[in-house]
Design a protein around this nucleic acid. Structure first.
Lengths: 146, 146
DNA sequence: GATGCGCTGGTCGAGTTCCTCCACAAGGCG
DNA sequence: CGCCTTGTGGAGGAACTCGACCAGCGCATC
């Protein structure tokens, strides 16, 4: 990816609502040119979308946890992600190397909901779980430096 | 938080670039009223910012990993997050319950960079590390359901 | 080595839409 | 009643978006 696109992406990572006009000023391009490039980045899949960064506690999702997941039957075909995709509390699902197969990042209002969620995960995917509760998060969702 | 704010936040989680006019149509409020509410949400810290969601591979950050971190000296005052905040490869830092003290989420171009980063983490924070490499991520950064 | 063609990626301008601020109204509440 | 909060509506200015046009470049053709 070339220099200009990279700078545009960098700027949009830092402020996803920046206007095309400002992006143009920051990159030395005209508004239309920037707009065109952003559209291309979007349809190439480099930019997958935009979102607000929200304080989880303010929306009643005070409890974050990582759940490591391992199928009961390692020989069965592994469709864990599809089985879990319907659980909205799961923010992310990573397939990982190591003892367990997947790491899930989940957010729930409180401990009771976590207990409930764990039961639903186990029954939906046929897996055993190991949960690591997040006590606090010093930082999160930092934009990467390109 | 009341119903209307919640719906606005929900919409902005799904599309961080939605215009105030559209937010108004979706919530039945006038453009000005929505704008006012969003501003309040921002300055109350409910909305911390906006960002583009970018395909990591497209920006040469193909390797994601979780690094669990534990100080060499458990009795020393723990300022690990501050010591690591300067390392741009670290996307998130969570203090967790369990055997280790923190879980870091990091992104680097490749294995060599991970090795290098681990060395920098250890020397900067005086910690031992255990890293879990992400093989693939079925989904990530899903907007929570409010 | 020129000529000419198509492609890519840029500027410019104009019409439309959106943002943003302000004045004012409607509803709690002491 | 007065005050605070939260809405509405409108107007001026800024931003978006589209089309027309242009410059550079690769390349087949003469």
């Amino acid at each position: 990816m070339e220099e200009l696109d990279q700078r545009i992406v960098q700027l949009l990572l830092q402020d996803g609502r920046m206007s095309y006009t400002d992006l143009g000023k920051a990159t030395g391009l005209s508004t239309s040119a920037v707009h065109q490039r952003v559209r291309r980045l979007e349809q190439r899949g480099v930019i997958r979308g935009y979102t607000a960064i929200v304080d989880p506690e303010a929306v009643d999702l005070a409890l974050t946890a990582f759940i490591s997941v391992k199928p009961f039957d390692p020989s069965a075909p592994d469709d864990t992600p599809e089985r879990l995709v319907g659980l909205a509390e799961i923010e992310a699902c990573h397939s990982v190397a190591g003892d367990e197969n997947y790491i899930l990042k989940v957010r729930v209002p409180g401990p009771g909901d976590l207990e409930d969620l764990l039961a639903r995960i186990r029954s939906a995917a046929g897996v055993s779980t190991r949960t690591t509760v997040v006590l606090s998060t010093p930082y999160e969702a930092r934009p990467p430096k390109l």
